[in-house]
Design a protein around this nucleic acid. Structure first.
Lengths: 339, 339
DNA sequence: CCATAGGTTGTTATCGATAACAAGCGATCC
DNA sequence: GGATCGCTTGTTATCGATAACAACCTATGG
């Protein structure tokens, strides 16, 4: 049944069938204004009857625009990454872009280079870097110079646009909430060392404590995983004077709560816990997790919007460096109690 | 500082600098065997000094291969989707493909068509459909005929390859575990109605019960979300003779456990619960969740492998319809007890 | 009634690479 | 020593579209 079509129909075929030139077909398909209605009609019909589909590759070659945007991200399979990517994809689709996706395993400059160059080689019009790395390399900078880009999370060097979430503020919200409830000994389980998010959240936590005149204990580093939160919990649960912990991600908070509970300390009666993210399962934690929501899908959309407008200006050459910060929101559930 | 390069260097530029023809440059860059070592060397140097990068668009146009594979998936930001996509991306990268990603919001034939045609228009070499829909439309079939494709989850009609996980077996494993522990009244919270996964898991559950000579209660439908699991829990928790529930996803299991616990029924003492997926948080559920692991990253990799080999054969025209089933594994934690 | 303007359509060149063919050249073989 | 072989390199055509220019035709105005 499936007859093998020797070749997909080209513009020439459509033109021939409609009795016009290829150029006219092109005009019709691009909605140029100056085409006679009947011609337009005829071309449309011919195209439909042949099942014609415009060849994006050829267009890209001649126009210099591929209408693809590249996304590079860490390959952690976390909720947050996925939500971000879905946000990006939606907005991109709405604006007529398709999304090419590259994930890297580690944060080394090597693999960052490798990933970026895959995207550039693929001919994307712009790149969204959803990578939380701090430093970078000359090679990376030069790659990012070849193509307009927007950074999520990380303030990468080149005069780039940034679509971000106010991490410091988020952390401050969480900690202030604990302070309001009367806690004075508030610990922090942070993300891994070289992540900007980790730093920002540490900063927010520290700021909040200091402005309240409270003592700042040492932070404990995790790696975003629930398992690392569990390990932190095994430590903190053994310290009797710890009554509150601000955890840098919901997933780590799950682990921490499990650990301290196993050690016989009740949450929130003995220890209050606040997370960050508001993952889908946060309300179903035992107890339901108080957390700061990150509107990730929105962040993804913003990133695409900025990239799109940057691509628009690109022709003209305007290049201001605006940053759009998104405001976090505290979600109070039951993992925090008044002291 | 950032000088605007009027145009990226082309093969011609490299050729000129190296004092050879464009074709020779092409040969060097494609690692053709018959090139004199010094020529090769000279070309390589010229390319490096110009910062030359091969234009994938032009290559794609002339070779007819874009080295892009398309992935279409539902835009649920679940853990599993992300894991799958990461698996796909890794394997694709390893085989020299880049991945273009389209997510759709609903399972209507309309949006499926829309998404697929975006991919086809973009010129992908092959498509991985990670969409759990049962039915489809003529238009969809015709789109899938234009391009080789592999289905994950769903047995889409066209003589497609399928990379799948043995859902029926997985469900059976879960239920048999409960039966072994002495349970006789085992309920099921299923996924949404028109998903193949839901059906397969229902089938497995039913099979296991029937072969044990047990009664089959009516299934309760959820939508994979923790919230829907919670609702199911509010129902099942009120039925005193229910001692075991097999839940079609870990996320729903989290919700269910929360609900029945709130109703005063202890897990696993009063009610045993088994999920499916083994999400990262499963061990940190209260109590730690017994579940059946889905090796999603592996499934993603398999899908790419099959697609790649299909793309290879495509030239020759072989087209058998092999299916690779991946075996599930039961992970016993503490949410199930002996009756 | 001719000149000009503007709408409509066609022609040609081009984007950046590769495939297919052609040519040059030294070595091997009889 | 001449013919053939095989390695190396260059030439030309092509992929499928669009940009830029050219040509034609129909109104409109003087």
């Amino acid at each position: 049944m499936a007859q093998k079509p020797s070749r997909a129909p080209s513009m020439r075929d459509v033109a021939q069938l409609a009795g016009v030139s290829a150029q006219t077909v092109s005009r019709v398909l691009s909605d140029h204004p100056n085409v006679q209605p009947d011609t337009r009609q005829a071309v449309r019909e011919a195209a439909r009857s042949l099942g014609y589909r415009r060849n994006a590759t050829a267009r890209a070659l001649v126009t210099g625009r591929s209408n693809m945007i590249g996304v590079i991200t860490l390959s952690t399979s976390s909720y947050s990454r996925m939500t971000l990517i879905v946000g990006i994809e939606r907005e991109a689709a709405a604006r007529g872009y398709s999304v090419t996706f590259v994930s890297i395993t580690d944060l080394s400059a090597r693999s960052l280079e490798e990933g970026l160059s895959r995207l550039v080689a693929q001919g994307v019009d712009g790149i969204i870097t959803a990578i939380p790395l701090q430093g970078s390399s000359a090679e990376v900078e030069s790659l990012l110079n070849e193509v307009p880009s927007v950074a999520i999370d990380s303030p990468l060097p080149a005069g780039q646009q940034v679509a971000a979430f106010d991490q410091v503020h988020a952390a401050r919200l969480a900690v202030e909430h604990l302070i309001e409830r009367g806690h004075t000994n508030i610990w922090h389980v942070a993300g891994p060392q070289d992540w900007v998010e980790s730093d920002a959240r540490i900063t927010g936590w520290r700021d909040a404590l200091e402005s309240a005149g409270l003592q700042v204990p040492p932070e404990i580093y995790g790696d975003w995983s629930a398992a690392s939160g569990y390990r932190a919990g095994l430590i903190l649960g053994r310290m009797p004077d710890v009554t509150a912990v601000f955890v840098a991600s919901d997933e780590m908070a799950f682990g921490l709560i499990k650990a301290v509970t196993e050690l016989g300390r009740a949450v929130p009666e003995d220890i209050s816990v606040v997370g960050i993210d508001d993952i889908e399962l946060a309300p179903y934690c035992t107890p339901p997790l108080t957390t700061v929501r990150q509107p990730l899908e929105e962040i993804g959309r913003h990133a695409v919007q900025q990239l799109d407008s940057e691509l628009g200006e690109h022709a003209q050459g305007g290049s201001r460096n605006q940053t759009r910060l998104i405001t976090p929101e505290l979600i109070v559930r039951s993992s925090t109690s008044t002291r």
